[in-house]
Every structure is written in C-alpha cells, then in structure tokens.
Design a protein around this nucleic acid. Sequence first.
DNA 1: TTAATTAACTTAACAGTGTTCAGTTAATGA
DNA 2: TCATTAACTGAACACTGTTAAGTTAATTAA
Lengths: 209, 209
Amino acid sequence: MGIKERKELEKQEMRRLILDTAMKLFLEKGLENVTIRHIAEKIEYSPATIYLYFKDKDDIIYTLHREGFEQLYKLQQTTLSIRDPLERLRKQGEVYVSFAMENPEYYDLMFIMRGPVKKIKEMKEWDIGFRSFEFLRQNIKECMEAGLFPEANIDIATFSLWSYAHGIVSLIIRDRCTMFPEDKIRNIVDEALDFMLGTMFDNKVEIKS
Amino acid sequence: MGIKERKELEKQEMRRLILDTAMKLFLEKGLENVTIRHIAEKIEYSPATIYLYFKDKDDIIYTLHREGFEQLYKLQQTTLSIRDPLERLRKQGEVYVSFAMENPEYYDLMFIMRGPVKKIKEMKEWDIGFRSFEFLRQNIKECMEAGLFPEANIDIATFSLWSYAHGIVSLIIRDRCTMFPEDKIRNIVDEALDFMLGTMFDNKVEIKS
DNA sequence: TTAATTAACTTAACAGTGTTCAGTTAATGA
DNA sequence: TCATTAACTGAACACTGTTAAGTTAATTAA
C-alpha cells in the first residue's frame, strides 16, 4: 500500500505549502491584508483548491495558531535549564516578549485576533494554550514555595504576570506606542520588563540590606 | 442666515445618528460584524448616504475612537479629587479597567483595532490619546516625588503601568481567558489589579513592620 | 411666480472578499 | 479496457466597501 501513503504525504505537503505561503504573506502584507485568492495565486492553484485542504480561512489561521503555541512552548522549556526559579521566571518573561517582538504576526493571531478563538470554541481544544499557562503557573508556584514571590492566589499571580507581558507587546504590535520613537521601542520593552520585575522583587532585597 | 445654521445643525444631527447607530450595532453584533449596509438599513437610508457624512468606514470608527478617549479622559479626571497620589494612582487603575470592562467595544477600537490608527497617522492627531498618557504620567511623577513609588524612568514606569492594565483587559476582551469561568472574570480582573499594585507597594510596608 | 442652482439622496454598478458546487481532467483499481 | 475515485478548476453566490451618475426636493435669483 505504498500509494495511499504517498497520497497522504502529498496531502500533508500541500497543507504545509499553503500554511507556509499564508504565513509568508502575513509577514509581508500584514494579517488583515491576505486573502485566500492571494495565497492561491502565490502557489499557482485555484482558490477553490485551498478548500480541499482547509475547511475555511479560520482553519488556516487556527492551524498557524497551534503551531505558534508549539513554538512558544518549546521556547518556554529552554528556561528549564535555569535552577533558580526566580531567575527562570525572569527568563520566561524575556522569552515571551522576544517571541512576540520577533514574530508579531504569530503573536497577533495567537493572542489578539478574534478568528482562531471561534475555531477553538467549536472544537473545544484549549489544551495548547493551557499548557503554556500551566508552565508559567508552575514556575510561579515554585517561586512562592521558595519564598521568593509575594504570597497570593497562584491563578491571579499567573494571570497578572501574563497580562503584564501581554500588555507590553500587544500595545506595540497594535501600534499604540507612537509617543515613543520607533528605534527606541525594543529598548523600552526590555526596560519595562525590568521595571516590573524590579519593583516586584528587588525592592524587597534593597530594604533588607 | 438662519437656514445655513439649521442645515449645519441637521448635518451634525445626521452624523450623530450614524455614530449612535454604528455604536449600537457594534454593541449588539460585535465590531467586526457591522457593515455600512447594516448601519444604513437601521437608519433607513441608502448606504451611499453615509458617505456624504463620513469619508469612509474608518472615519466613523476614528470618530468613535476620539469620543471614547474623551469619555476616558473625563473619567480619569474624576480621580483628581483624591489627594494622596498613590491612592489616586490606584483609583486611576480602577477607572481604566472599569471603563474597559463596561465598554469593551469602545476599548477595542481605542486600544486594539487596527483601523483607527491608520486615520490617526494620516491626520497626525495623536493628542487625544497622548493627553490620557500624560495624565497618568503626571500622577506617577507625583508619586515618585513623594517617595511613594520606586525610582525609575518616568516614561518606562508610565508605560509599564499602562501595559499592565491594558494586558488584563485586552486578554479578556479578546477572549483569551477561557481558563477562568465566565462569572468569575470581573473578580479576577479586580484581584489582578490589587495583586500588581500590592506587590509593587504594599510589600515594602509589610517588611518594615 | 418662474427659472436656475444647489443640496440630499438613491440606484446601480465596480472591484474585491470568503465560499460552494457542478463539471473536467488525470490517476488508480478491477 | 473500463469504472471509479481523486485532484482540481470555472463560474457563480452572497457578501463587503466605495463611487459615479442620475433623480428628486429645497433654496435662491430674476
């Protein structure tokens, strides 16, 4: 049965081609300016062909959304090499923010766009995003248990730190930071991250000493 | 010249009618599901008529964007009655978050949607949003001068606090908080705000005592 | 009062969107 | 060799924002 397998492989390759082309166009033209017809034209197929590989446009976006979370989770796991949980937490913040700044279109469809959420609710597939949340939560829990983190409800604390990082990058991705010069923005992001973690943890140390 | 004035008045009334209808539909159907044709149908005019009062769809959204900032600024100013700058800052956070939670469509077009930004860049009209940023900045400056706030670059601190509040509400508005039950969300928002302000300021006191 | 002008509005279209369905090829299996 | 299946497309549908030409109605000037 070599043929069936080959067919399946070709099907996967075609899906890959569509996804890669879609993402390339998203990067070039911005998320909202890419149409099914553009993608079709780029891969030199008829628009209708795309619907043989994906249910609809949101299905393409949803798939990229999943792959984005896959990437992000892998990045998050690189922090596991750090022993000190607070250091690891800081690194997680950096990793998250870097991911967003380097892949703004991925970040947008993962955390800002409305499209993918519809699909997720239809399919009841929260687990991918949930896993990343849980990873952060676990890190915060460790910090608390080590007395490095203010005692509080863990869910609230996790949501809070996530919100903070998300706030920074989403204001920039959606272009609400025009009060800062373009070329300083990357610096400001890093400083904002330092500021928040600094005010949360370092001032304790300062006062102790 | 009573007639010219009346005409002008009627023109303004028509603009108002379009804006109010648009906003009502936004609230009903969500921002992305409202079309010019819907608005036109609701006010019982032809779609083309709307283009006699607004340049294009983004112009409508941009105008609502402006009005949203007007509202927000007024709300911000209600905090001026509070003497203690740190208390006032906390209140500002509450006011901001409340505004977002009670007017999610306004918040969305003010701080998330891409549309209005295009218009703002065309017209180079940053001042409305800038004013609110400046107001927060001033409050933080006062806190710093009173020694109530960790010493830091004011711009970074302002951006940071704004980011934090924005992060919380935008994750909820764009439906990324499905790990929390719907009916708990309003509480979680408040607790997250408390958590952040708490870790930033209160733990100083705790350690001293 | 009547004719010319202007304003308010609509009709009908254009180009573009996501999506579907009937039809056409080409590859496969009996 | 022939029937079946898979891959693909052309042409359409129902939408979208937007505009140009045409039609009324209100206003102004004679």
